[in-house]
Amino acid sequence: MGDGPPTLWEWIARNWDTGRVGSIRDLLGDHLVMSLVPIVAGLLLALPLGLASVRWRWLYQPTAGVFNVIYALPSLPVFMLLISVTGLSQLTVIIPLTFYAMAVLIPAVVDGLGAVPEHVRQSAVAMGFTPLRRLVQVELPIATPVVLAGLRVVAVSSISLVSVGALIGQGGLGMLFTRAYQNPFLPPVIVGIALIVLLALVADGLLVLAQRLLTPWVRARRAT
């Protein structure tokens, strides 16, 4: 290693796992937690709310309205306002991202269930399915492609949005951006952007795979 600034690869090798807080590996782990929790929590909360909105139609307009407003709020001021409640913790980033996820997933659940053809629903009733069994074995599987499409949007945008949290010191890989800005140096920015885009692509790929495994009939129908 010479006297000049380290090259990209040297910088990566030196900072990948320093054993201290703030190594790239450390930040990657934080980033995964802060993006995965909102994706999963958003889905778990959107499912019952979406189901309720389908069951009681009047509920849908107000729910969608509230989440449309929430979705329009920029993340940084929301993080800042939440600090007084949750402090400078990962939760300050996780909670708003969960709400953004719900704003995308609730309509996806409602649209997905709306895509169940009436004759299919009636066939299930005629076959003696109880409402719960009909939901789990007929309606939810048919809704899966639409819900997963929403989940892909949520996954990719959550992964990229976590980095804004760096401005309150909780940004996962986004911390590389603030570090690079305070001490002007390109490699951390490049590594940060590359890893975030890579994470997003992997998440997206896994969801596409999940869709293939969960809805084999979609491909079977296309093949015939």
């Binding site: 945008s157 990229s160 804004v164 890989l173 590389l176 603030t178 690079a180 952007i193 975030i196 997003a200």
Partner: peptide, 19 residues
Amino acid sequence: ANLARALPTLGLLVLFVLL
């Protein structure tokens, strides 16, 4: 457009300002 959704805002801003 899907790829663009993955681009982190803060990262792009810092990148262009440094460049």
